[in-house]
């Protein structure tokens, strides 16, 4: 191929790829979610939509910084409305959740409870479901684990499965082998911070399936020898619901050091017993 041809082709390629970069930068994936939300807002609640918002299709990149937690969450970029009472009837991904009224976003952010990657603005990275992020989104019933990070008091209505998991833990005598909050024997691993474990911290054996902490816990509870054939752990023959409940409880036992100001007044932790007490 002559240099003239290379010159023409490369020039076209350079122009094309430059345009592609500009197009990509000008069209971040979150734009279409904001567009959808604004369309819904205009259609569903025109009287509450301020005039300034009437013509607006986008509100731009949104972020909530929580200094005390050193977190920056951009989730509301794609999920506007989740803390906006006008969006009670919005499609699920934009819908207002009453629990957010008691947990103002400016104070708690999003990822403290939901996990995922707050700084990311694209799926699957933002959901923490891409490689190299150890905190995938707590989906469905697993979100109940988030409540247990701060709320030590019983939550039978708000987080029934978490509550069931806590009870199962005591009923089955897990502390006969596992230590938690300084109580219990140390035959098996200490469970402090078990909810913050990364997939690499777990024994997966020869298993080649997807590797996340909830998957490991669930399968481990249903059959302790599924990953480690010679695990000394007792098989309690748990059904799916019980295994899920225990998994949720385990997921609530995170390493997070919660600032006191964020803790609910009723369950600020009592002074911890001394080691070995």
């Amino acid at each position: 191929m002559s240099f003239q041809k290379v010159f023409i082709l490369s020039s076209i390629a350079l122009l094309a790829i430059s345009v592609a970069w500009v197009v990509r930068e000008l069209n971040p994936p979150w734009l279409r979610y904001q567009e959808a939300y604004h369309d819904w807002l205009r259609a569903a609640a025109p009287e509450t939509t301020p005039a300034s918002l009437q013509a607006q299709r986008f509100s731009g990149l949104q972020q909530v910084g929580v200094q005390a937690l050193r977190r920056l969450d951009r989730c509301t970029t794609c999920h506007p409305g989740v803390a906006d009472p006008r969006a009670k009837e919005a499609p699920p991904m934009f819908r207002f959740r009453p629990v957010h009224a008691q947990h103002p976003m400016e104070k708690f952010g999003c990822t403290l409870c939901h996990r995922g990657q707050g700084r990311a603005t694209e799926v699957p990275e933002a959901h923490g479901e891409a490689p190299f992020w150890d905190e995938p989104l707590l989906r469905g019933v697993y979100l109940q684990a988030a409540c247990g990070q701060c709320h030590r008091e019983p939550l039978p209505t708000q987080a029934p499965l978490l509550e069931e998991g806590r009870q199962l833990f005591e009923v089955y005598g897990c502390r006969n082998c596992h230590r938690l909050d300084g109580r219990g024997r140390q035959v098996g691993p200490d469970l402090a911070g078990v909810g913050s474990k990364a997939p690499e911290d777990l024994m997966w054996g020869d298993d080649t399936g997807p590797r996340t902490l909830p998957i490991w816990l669930l399968r481990h509870f249903k059959d302790p020898r599924t990953f480690q054939p010679n695990s000394p752990m007792t098989d309690f023959r748990l059904n799916d619901a019980q295994a899920t409940a225990l998994t949720i409880y385990m997921l609530s036992l995170t390493k997070l050091e919660m600032p006191r100001a964020l803790l609910p007044s009723r369950s600020r932790p009592a002074p911890q017993p001394e080691e070995g007490a």
Partner: peptide, 25 residues
């Protein structure tokens, strides 16, 4: 020289478009 530079730049921009720089935990 100009041709080689243009071709190299185009290739570099294409590679950068398709592959993100790695970033682990």
């Amino acid at each position: 020289e100009f041709t080689v530079a243009i071709a190299a730049l185009a290739l570099l921009l294409i590679i950068s478009f398709v592959f993100d720089a790695p970033l682990e935990q």
